[in-house]
Write a protein that binds this DNA or RNA. Structure first.
Length: 462
RNA sequence: GGCGCGGUGGCAGAGUGGUUAUGCAGCGGACUGCAACUCCGUGUACGCCGGUUCGAUUCCGACCCGCGCCUCCA
């Protein structure tokens, strides 16, 4: 039985999909006006693991993750760059796909883009107007009338009075209530726009997710996820729009990832304290970054620091060392072990990846034990378990040597290194340890670490 | 001010009403020409104060501290 923490009820609940055996899940993706930072990476990886695990447990998962490719920030950024907005979004979408591929994130089943769903957006707004939940204003905008939805605030636990009383909402003449939000934004002259019954304009921020999710998954679906800062107002508004437009419950389980922090503060665009995925990947192997993300629970907040990444590097290196030089048995040839059962047990509990990783370490310890005992076959069987559990977390799928030797080969190619290792071996044989050490130091200075063992010398990049 | 989350061993990070998390670092040992790497062994922690209980880090209440949302942000 899988249990998932539901932000809507604030409780862990038994997960029962609407349609047995199938999971329909929607996750808010990027607004593509800039490169993804690590916070985006966390959401990407978290829901990637969730998808992998649900499939591992036998569910047929239909995973939709949208791209918001029209919005004020995009238009502003494109304008600053002096380019057409589609050039900017095209570039950022490609960059995003590169980033996620490097992090081992599987493609979603569908990746709808807002600009391809304008008709559905317009239709949904029309439905909201005709049912009295929205109104066109004099300024060309269309607003959602928050007071028409008594349940407004149920996700974020906010009271309408408090929101209205809080002076931070944008009080506009055109709005009936300060908490009302735009479904459609009338175009000023020269702006990118689409025709609509209320004049040319573009969608407001929240409506595209309501339109795309219901179009792709139906009025009601199982899981809706996203980053922590989407809870309000974005997801709250999605609920209002969708439930008023369809008359049905929108989503059963709401899931939110925890924030990435830097020096105890949330990593965010507005604070400017963010690190993009690509700049982090210049310094650390992608799998190390993924390991770092997966090693804490998806809902907890986690501090990003160089030390954390260094530690993740050391730890992942140890895991790969257990696998090094072993050909794992075929996964199908190894039956379910106590480790598999333990893995399922912890992952069933709201996707406890931190617990799952401790299982990985237990299996690695077992491999090492078998090797100590000289039981090659048992070691190969355990290695198969480690690798097949790794699949679910998206870890340990590389050839160990590839993991160890990945990195810049600007200074030295693998062939250079092999040649130097041979020269050192000759020197050692001749008991010329001064020369042997000189070669070792030279390699070390160039970022190559030698690992001597009974079978010979292997190497890896620092 | 409103709403919410969290405080676990040197650090990171799970979990539990009475029994081992795990990892990193440290320490001891094996291995080594010497090292490094690796491997083996090793640590009894749960913010503070009350309460419930035979027994609480785990449940309840108060308090202190940190963080998040309430405004564009994943």
């Amino acid at each position: 039985m899988i249990r998932i923490y539901n932000t809507l009820t604030k409780e862990k609940e038994e997960f029962r999909p609407i349609e047995p055996g199938k999971v329909r899940m929607y996750v808010c993706g990027m607004t593509v006006y800039d490169y993804c930072h690590l916070g985006h990476g966390r959401v990407l990886v978290a829901f990637d693991v969730i998808t992998r695990y649900l499939r591992h447990r036998g569910f047929d998962v239909h995973y939709v993750r949208n791209i918001t490719d029209i919005d004020d920030k995009i238009l502003i950024r494109a304008d600053e760059n002096g380019e057409v907005f589609t050039e900017l979004t095209g570039r950022m979408i490609q960059a995003m796909h590169e980033d996620e591929a490097r992090l081992g994130v599987l493609s979603p089943s569908e990746e709808p883009r807002a600009t391809a769903y304008i008709d559905d957006i317009v239709a949904m707004i029309q439905r909201l107007i005709s049912t009295g939940h929205a109104y066109p204003a004099d300024n060309g905008d269309v607003y959602f009338a928050v007071e028409s939805f008594p349940e407004y605030g149920k996700l974020s636990r906010k009271k309408l009075e408090d929101l209205v009383a809080g002076a931070r909402v944008d009080v506009q003449e055109a709005k009936r209530s300060p908490a009302d939000f735009a479904l459609w934004k009338g175009a000023k002259s020269g702006e990118v726009s689409w025709p609509s019954p209320w004049g040319d304009g573009r969608p407001g921020w929240h409506i595209e997710c309501s339109a795309m999710s219901t179009k792709c998954l139906g009025d009601t679906f199982d899981i809706h996820g996203g980053g922590p800062d989407l809870l309000f107002p974005h997801h709250e508004n999605e609920i209002a729009q969708s439930e008023c437009a369809t008359g049905h419950k929108f989503v059963h389980t709401w899931m939110h990832a925890g924030a990435i922090r830097v020096n105890k503060e949330k990593m965010s665009k507005s604070l400017g304290n963010f690190f993009t995925i690509r700049e982090i990947l210049e310094k650390y192997p992608a799998e190390v970054v993924r390991y770092f993300l997966v090693s804490s629970h998806y809902r907890s907040q986690v501090d990003y620091s160089e030390e954390s990444l260094e530690e993740a590097t050391r730890t992942l290196t140890k895991l790969y060392h257990a696998l090094r030089g072993l050909v794992p048995a075929k996964p199908g040839d190894v039956g379910e072990t106590e480790h598999d059962r333990r893995f399922t047990e912890v992952m069933d509990d709201d996707f406890n990846t931190a617990g799952a990783i401790s299982v990985l370490h237990a299996v690695a310890g077992e491999i090492n034990q078998h090797r100590r005992d000289g039981d090659e076959e048992a070691a190969r069987n355990s290695a198969a378990v480690l690798v097949r559990l790794g699949v679910v977390l998206g870890l340990l799928q590389q050839d160990p040597e590839a993991f160890f030797q990945s990195g810049s080969d600007d200074d030295l190619t693998a062939e250079d290194i092999e040649a130097m290792i041979q020269a050192r071996a000759d020197a050692r044989k001749a008991k010329d340890f001064a020369e042997a050490d000189r070669i070792r130091d030279e390699l070390m200075a160039k970022g190559v670490i030698l690992d001597d063992s009974r079978e010979g010398t292997s190497w890896r990049r620092a």
